[in-house]
């Protein structure tokens, strides 16, 4: 019984990581209707950057965040202004294919720089520490940190979108790009900022991924799939829904894994398909898909 409680708790906390994967995707879809196929590869790119910084300078990976998050945000801004903005021409094929191309390029650049071997970011023991809750129930310290970060990111984004002038501008642009320009909103600048925020979160997600698990250059697509699943389960445009979606994935994965190690990831995909069949618009739908 205690084992099962631990399994479910582990799964719920794993949902925090998936939610971190997903918020960036949710944001770029919500504001620009951009589904970034290279999203997972950007997470892996951030993990490699962190790996390089941590092993080269010997700093703590949480300190490395101070470097990686702004670097990824800047990269996101540049990527949006130089490449992605040109792909948002109305047809969904163009952004999909452009980001697919980006995905292939990123994977192969990572192979040529870091080789195809898998890596992990050394974090000095924090990744294995546990917090006992009594009665044999324990929580991993590190998954708790990840979950707290995910909640913090979502609260921060909610405040940004709901309470600030920039957030209003994001929502207005998401509703109606042309009318937003009539308000004096420079949508190209705004899209650049949206991508910068999305990629900043990707930076966070990448470092957290790299501390928790091994990664290699080809790992990106599977992370994109988790992120996508969390967004769809939660309902397009709902950030708390995305967290719930991540938790559903995490719990089904850890229960599946406990039943048979081969079934873990399969169980989370099946949970996703089940939600899709039963509630095609997700659990907490908000934005309409175009």
């Amino acid at each position: 019984m205690v084992d099962w409680i631990n399994t479910v708790l582990q799964g719920l906390l794993l949902g925090g990581l998936y939610a971190l994967f997903a918020t960036g995707l949710s944001l770029s879809f919500g504001i620009m209707r951009l589904v970034n196929i290279a999203h997972g590869d950007m997470i892996v790119l951030a993990a490699y950057l962190a790996y390089a910084v941590v092993t080269h300078f010997g700093i703590n990976p949480f300190v490395a965040l101070l470097l990686i998050v702004p670097a990824m945000a800047a990269w996101g801004y540049v990527l949006q202004r130089v490449v992605l903005s040109r792909s948002l021409t109305g047809s969904i094929l163009t952004p999909l294919m452009v980001t697919l191309g980006l995905s292939i390029i990123t994977q192969n650049v990572l192979v040529s720089v870091f080789s195809a071997d898998s890596r992990a970011i050394p974090a000095g023991g924090v990744e294995t520490a546990a917090v006992p809750l009594g009665g044999g129930v324990t929580l991993g310290l590190y998954p708790l940190i990840v979950m707290a970060t995910a909640i913090g990111v979502i609260v921060g984004l909610q405040l940004l979108l709901g309470r600030t002038e920039l957030g209003r501008a994001f929502r207005a642009t998401s509703d109606d790009q042309e009318t937003a320009q009539l308000m004096g909103i420079d949508n190209r600048l705004l899209y650049g900022l949206a991508m910068a925020i999305a990629m900043g979160i990707v930076g966070l997600a990448g470092v957290y991924l790299g501390i928790r698990a091994n990664f290699d250059p080809s790992a990106g697509p599977s992370h994109l799939i988790y992120a996508f699943e969390a967004v769809v389960i939660g309902g397009l445009g709902s950030l708390w829904g995305t967290l719930a979606g991540g938790m559903i994935l995490g719990v089904s994965q850890s229960i599946g894994f406990r039943l048979d190690p081969g079934w873990g990831i399969l169980a989370s995909h099946l949970a996703f398909l089940a939600v899709l069949v039963l509630k095609p618009n997700g659990l907490f739908p908000r934005t309409r898909d175009r």
């Binding site: 952004p95 995909h269 898909d289």
Partner: peptide, 27 residues
């Protein structure tokens, strides 16, 4: 299943289905 999704979401949804088949056979 996948026809419940539209546009870009259809794209990634079909991908998930492929992963499911891969994992089913792996098991």
């Amino acid at each position: 299943v996948v026809f419940r999704l539209r546009g870009a979401y259809f794209a990634v949804g079909t991908w998930v289905v492929a992963e499911v088949f891969r994992l089913l056979i792996t098991n």
